[in-house]
Amino acid sequence: MFKPKEDRMAKVKSLADLRKMKENLQSKVHLREKADNPEALVQIKVGMGTSGIASGAKEVFNYLVDELEKRNIEAVVTQTGDMGYSYAEPTIEVTLPGKEPIVYGYVDVKKADEIIEKYVKLGEMVDGIIPANYRTIEENK
């Protein structure tokens, strides 16, 4: 039955304690809460087909997840398949709430930083946009 384990977190001694603990533990379920309402948040898709991964998309993906959290930006970062711009890997697609998606090419960690600081935070365009050169199935109907 009940055995106190020493390596566990200490007892919750006050409401302030509980709230502090909540802050620390929120990240455990945060990913799921965000998933419930992605349209209201910044959505970033990282093209992670073979060519993307070979060009370093995984590092960019990890960087985006970690940095957005550090900089307190609510965002959903997901991986997706090859976007087709193999010449410009790694590619990412950024959708700000209520705006059209924008695809950036040749995104390394430095570029990702610039995109977060300028486009995500301030809405300023950043060099390296790949113009949409396709129509989606919905548009073609």
């Binding site: 533990l25 455990k28 799921r32």
Partner: peptide, 24 residues
């Protein structure tokens, strides 16, 4: 939504907050 066997997930989602509010 939560792992029912993990109190930390529950606390992370406002768990026991209501009890705290009432008590204090």
């Amino acid at each position: 939504f939560l792992d029912p066997e993990n109190i930390e997930e529950y606390i992370g989602r406002e768990g026991y907050e209501a009890m705290g509010k009432c008590l204090l």
